[in-house]
């Protein structure tokens, strides 16, 4: 994303900046912005389609894509040093640990042990596994 350096980069650039010059200067950011808006629109549309069990998969997939776009381009993670990338990843890794081990408890509860409210709701909706 190397934007061409603007000619008169001094503080007193000409007052009325032409739109085309402005677009050319921020070409990179505008492309990224457009990508984000498209992804947002996509996830919005997909939410209304009858995807059934695939809903969480698609909505989370697109959200992760948007997050990566913002992190890599807007937050310049692409050119940061390894330590900073490690710091960025550390939060997510240990969040993953919290998710997986907590889910391990809830998903592996045998039929007799789960919450009473859960047993009640599962009794009412037989087609739910």
């Amino acid at each position: 994303m190397s934007a061409r350096p603007h000619k008169a980069a001094s503080a007193a650039e000409p007052r009325e900046k032409t739109l085309r010059a402005w677009l050319r200067e921020f070409r990179a950011e505008l492309i990224v912005w457009l990508a984000l808006m498209l992804l947002a629109a996509a996830t919005f549309v997909l939410a209304y389609l009858p995807l059934g069990p695939f809903h969480p998969l698609t909505s989370m997939g697109i959200a992760v894509a948007k997050a990566l776009v913002v992190a890599l381009f807007f937050m310049h993670l692409k050119r940061e040093s390894a330590t900073i990338r490690l710091a960025a990843a550390a939060g997510l890794v240990f969040l993953g640990v919290l998710f997986t081990l907590t889910l391990a408890d809830y998903l592996s509860r045998p039929p007799g042990v789960e919450l009473d409210a859960v047993r009640a709701t599962r009794a009412q909706t037989p087609q739910q596994p």
């Binding site: 240990f94 640990v97 081990l101 391990a104 408890d105 809830y106 592996s108 509860r109 045998p110 042990v113």
Partner: peptide, 22 residues
């Protein structure tokens, strides 16, 4: 140290398989 917290909950009604993992 971040993987082991479940050993505080062996008797709390946590699922037995998760207890073994912890």
């Amino acid at each position: 140290g971040f993987f082991v917290w479940g050993h505080h909950m062996f008797t709390s009604g946590q699922s037995m398989y998760a207890s073994l993992a912890f």
